[in-house]
Design a protein around this nucleic acid. Structure first.
Length: 480
DNA sequence: TGAAATGTTGGGGCG
DNA sequence: ACGCCCCAACATTTC
């Protein structure tokens, strides 16, 4: 029986067949494979997957299930209990997985590995999510980088190109499905009461094949000119939308890296390509920050920010969440998030700056809202980005960089197309007023069908005053 | 991966 | 022709 003992392939954030080293190793071992997914809400603490992520996961698992010819078994619960039970029941001798990097998953996986090895089970883990392992990227003095540029140039790319992606296994031999194996529907990932997911479905195609198609479309339509137009929320083709696919591992960063590299040479778009690669670098940087600072999601990297006099205002928070701040570019972003589970990167910075600096609300409020609403919600990226915009991160934008919502709107959405799309009640305003409707003369407002305070809110704070207050509040951090 | 305030320069209008 | 003022336009500093 020993030679037919099945191998467990534990899928986590690697929901793909291509460039999946754990799956490949399990298949190559010659043992029949049991593919498993566990929705582990028990160990995630406050970072249980949010609503939008669950919706995405549901569809991603369906896609994976198809690729695995219906052999994926799904479980809901504590992986520390489910994995050992499954191994015992199925007579598994070796388990294969790709590494995860959220602190709670690291702790959990370490514990599982120790327990299994004590019981004579082999554990083989691999890197499938990052271009470079966090612990290999450190300064010469053995401390982690705190500034992006040297992190990426001296720390990452100086190591050489990331490995070339490996192909999907040619043929997978499956073991018998475990007796009590659950199905995807048992995970209850879809929203129960309000079916907000129906609206989101039109915006996304989910799964490994879709991720590759999306990347190819971006390479064809959005790489040439990416460096400049990536900042334009009104120009959708310059956004790759790889983030949710990357988060769930439907595509590997190595695959993206090498596809970009090929295009840079073939199409002569070195600058644009390099810039895209550096965006992958920011993802690596976020993972590094989280790896070396496990409390990144809750604790400011700059300790002096613990003295910051944050505001507490549930009403203002609600208006921000609903896209009712009275600042069109902010409201457009928040509504894009709510409707599509996504927000353009430039606009994420604008709404983040607004929450933290204009409203003086704690960045963790924004972090929590994004966590629940984003289909690409990712602990490392989300925490590092909120700390960055709040000014309390390692390599952060200084606190006094306060985005002007009108200025940002005029610069990056000059014709107001983005605002018109998500804030239709302002659609008839002329371009030069759409980012500041309160400046419009009464006649223009009337012609556009806008009644401030009724069809669209007055600004909930005055920009100039809010800016002055933010700078004043910032003084408090200088005491420490 | 800012914005606003302040400083400097240079051309043009005008007495 | 000259000095003076105004004010873009640009540069630098400050938050």
């Amino acid at each position: 029986m020993a030679d037919t003992a099945p191998a467990l392939a534990w899928f986590r954030q690697d929901l793909r067949l291509n460039d999946n080293p754990a799956l490949s190793a399990a298949v190559q071992s010659g043992a029949p494979v049991i593919p498993v997914y566990i929705l582990d809400d028990d160990n995630a603490g406050p970072w249980k997957m949010g609503g939008a992520s669950r919706w995405w996961l549901h569809h991603s698992l369906n896609s994976l299930q198809e690729s695995l010819a219906g052999n994926l078994s799904c479980y809901h619960g504590d992986a520390r209990l489910i994995i050992p039970a499954l191994i015992k029941e199925s007579g598994v001798k070796t388990i294969y997985w790709n590494r995860c990097y959220e602190p709670w998953r690291i702790d959990r996986d370490k514990e599982i590995k120790l327990l299994l090895e004590e019981n004579g089970i082999k554990v083989q883990s691999f890197n499938a999510s990052l271009l470079y392992e966090p612990w290999t990227v450190q300064k010469n003095d053995g401390t982690p980088y705190r500034v992006f540029t040297p992190f990426f140039r001296r720390g990452c790319t100086a190591q050489g190109e990331p490995p070339v992606p490996r192909p999907a296994p040619e043929k997978i031999t499956y073991a018998k499905r475990p007796a009590k194996a659950g199905n995807i529907s048992d995970l209850n990932l879809l929203p129960q009461k309000i079916r907000w997911d129906q609206k989101m479905e039109s915006h996304w195609t989910i799964g490994e094949d879709a991720a590759l198609t999306r990347l190819d479309d971006f390479l064809d339509q959005g790489l040439d000119g990416y460096k400049e137009d990536r900042n334009r929320p009104d120009r959708q083709q310059y956004v790759s939308r790889m983030s949710p696919h990357l988060h769930f591992g439907e595509i590997s960063p190595r695959t993206i890296w090498h596809k970009i590299r090929q295009r840079m040479i073939a199409d002569g778009v070195e600058n644009d390509g390099d810039h895209y690669l550096s965006e992958l670098g920011w993802r690596e940087f976020s993972y590094s920050l989280l790896f070396f600072n496990p409390d990144l999601p809750t604790t400011p990297l700059q300790k002096r920010f613990e003295a910051f006099p944050w505001n507490k205002d549930d009403n203002a928070l609600l208006k921000w969440q609903r896209g009712q701040t009275g600042y069109p570019i902010v409201d457009a972003g928040m509504r894009e998030l709510w409707e599509t589970g996504y927000m353009h990167n430039r606009v994420r910075m604008i709404v983040g700056s607004f929450l933290v600096k204009h409203l003086l609300l704690h960045w963790s409020e924004g972090e929590k809202w994004f966590w629940d609403c984003l289909v690409d919600a990712d602990l490392a990226n989300n925490a590092a980005s909120w700390q960055w915009i709040a000014g309390c991160g390692a390599d952060a934008a200084p606190y006094f960089r306060i985005f002007n919502p009108m200025g940002q709107g005029e610069k990056f959405d000059p014709n107001g197309d983005y605002v018109r799309r998500f804030v239709p009640e302002l659609a008839k305003l002329p371009n030069d007023l759409i980012h500041q409707p309160w400046e419009a003369p009464p006649l223009i407002l009337k012609q556009a069908g806008v009644v401030l305070g009724k069809t669209y809110p007055h600004p909930i704070v005055n920009h100039k005053e809010a800016r002055a207050k933010a700078l004043e509040a910032f003084q408090a951090t200088k005491i420490l």
